[in-house]
Amino acid sequence: MIVVFEKGYALRHIGHLDLLRTIQRALRRTDLPIRYSNGFNPHIQLSFAAPLSVGVVGLREVMDVPIQGECDEAVFTRELNRALPGCLQVCQSRAVPDDFPTLMALVAGSRIRVEVEGGEAADLVAKAFDRFMSVEECVTLRKTKSGENMTNIRPFVEEAALEAKPDGYTIRCLIRNQKEGSLKPAVLVQALCEMAQVESVSYIAYRDQILARNPSGQLIALEEYAYA
C-alpha cells in the first residue's frame, strides 16, 4: 500500500529511524492486514521514498506499507489515522500491485519551502536569494554519509520563487536531484547566509511534495506516478 502522510510541525525533530518505529507501532495498534517479515526478528518492512531531514516538516511524505491480501484504501487511511497521533496523519492510501517499483528508485526531486522569520538578517538573505538564482555556480560545504565535500548546489535548484510577507519571507524551490543525491533545505539556507554574510536566520523548512518523473520526462507528484 502506497501511503501519503504528513509529518507535522510538532514532529519535525523526530529522526527517520524514530519515525519508522513510530509508524510500525501505529500499524501494530490497528487490525489492518499487515505483512511481517520472516526470520528471527519479524517486523514490518516499511520503505520510504526519501528520508526527511531532521527539523523539516513533511506535508506529503510517501511510504510503502507491506500488506497481506487486499485492503480497501479508505479503510486503510481511516484505521491507520486512528492509531496515529494528530501530528502524524495519513492523507491518502493507494493500493498497488506487488511488482510496483520501489519508491526510492522513482524519486527525482522535491518541492521545498523555507519560511524565514522577518528581520535584518532575513532581508539580507532575501537579497542573497535573488543573487543565488542569477548565478551559475554556488559552491558550499555539503555533509553526506560519505563525508563532507564542497558541492556546487546551484544545479539542484529550479523554479524558485521568493515572496515577501508581513512577518518574513517564503522561499519556494523545486529541487531536482542530481547524481550526488538531493539538497537539504538547511544546506541551501546555510549557503544563502554565507552569501548574505549573516551568521544565521530563524526559519522553518517544509518539504511540500516528493517528485517523480513520468515516462515523458515530466516531474509529477510521486504518489501520482502511474504504473503501467
Binding site: 514532529l11 525533530h13 523526530i14 529522526g15 524514530d18 527539523g55 496515529l84 494528530g86 530563524s202
Partner: peptide
C-alpha cells in the same frame, strides 16, 4: 528556537501517542 540549538530536541517536544 532553543530546540534548533540543542542535542536530541525530541526530548522536549512531547506530543507522544
Amino acid at each position: 528556537k532553543l530546540l534548533e540549538r540543542v542535542e536530541k530536541p525530541a526530548r522536549y517536544t512531547g506530543n507522544e501517542m
